[in-house]
Design a protein around this nucleic acid. Structure first.
Length: 255
DNA sequence: ATGGCTTGAGTGTCAAGA
């Protein structure tokens, strides 16, 4: 089984690239973040024509998440139980015997911002809720844009990023708390190239110079991690014209 | 130190991303 995550930074703009990617890679499920459109404008027909069904939770302008899957998703759930959040950042569903959680973690903006507090509160609620999800479901995978680079090796220039969001100790503690619930970072189950990243700033030729961060992750519950055969970052879409600033991450699960 | 791009809003130019 192939599962993937991709922050597309507007599904309206990136729809042709998403359809191309689905045709080329034929994942069983693709989790999308930052679709940036209301449910009424979700391009369901085009996705169905590509052989995929969609579960989605969108809003105007910001955020928005979706799970595209070859077999229709079941038991679709929205948001985080216990967190009253108008921002559309989490959708979950059963696909192929897996419980998939698609998440778009808040950015936080800066360490002195209200949005940073929101991010930390959000992550605390997310962890508490995921603990219950792990107890309730045998095979849980949490895919998405975590907006956290877990370690210095996930940052092109740790010195330059000191004092910024995405790398702060409190965010990394929050990520570690997720791991401690019983998840594995599927990317780190395997030997990987040095300087592997999933996001590069649009400015300053960030991608060309590989000035990136690894902030998109696929976390697998322990039993699922034991069946993970591969995990990789697909750099190809980031080379396109009008790319998303994020690259897809793909994991292979043996049934 | 700042801004460098991109998107959506909406038709000026700003907020937000990371």
């Amino acid at each position: 089984m192939r599962i993937a995550t991709w922050n597309v930074n507007s599904l309206k703009v990136r729809l042709p690239q998403v359809l191309d990617w689905l045709a080329k890679h034929r994942p069983d499920a693709l989790c999308l973040q930052e679709i940036k459109l209301e449910d009424a404008n979700f391009p369901e027909a085009a996705i169905r024509a590509a052989g995929y069904s969609a579960a989605f939770s969108g809003q105007k302008t910001y955020n928005g998440v979706a799970i595209l899957s070859r077999e229709p998703a079941a038991n679709i759930a929205f948001g985080i139980d216990g967190l009253d959040d108008p921002q559309r950042r989490v959708i979950s569903a059963d696909v192929g015997g897996l419980r998939l959680v698609c998440a778009y973690v808040p950015n936080g903006q800066s360490l002195d911002s209200d949005k940073y507090q929101y991010k930390l509160n959000w992550l605390a609620a997310f962890a508490t809720w995921l603990e219950g999800e792990l107890a309730a479901h045998a095979r849980v995978a949490v895919l998405g844009d975590y907006n956290i680079a877990p370690e210095d090796r996930d940052v092109h220039d740790p010195k330059a990023w000191e004092g910024h969001v995405l790398v702060s100790p409190r965010e990394r503690d929050a990520f570690r708390r997720l791991i401690d619930l019983g998840f594995r970072d599927s990317f780190r189950l395997f030997e990987q190239p040095e300087k592997s990243y999933t996001w590069w700033d649009y400015r300053m030729h960030g991608f060309k110079r590989n000035l990136g961060l690894r902030i998109d992750h696929i976390l697998l519950g322990r039993d699922l991690a034991a069946n993970c055969a591969a995990c990789s970052i697909d750099l190809e879409p980031r080379r396109h014209e009008r790319p998303s600033d994020h690259a897809p991450v793909v994991a292979e699960i043996e049934s």
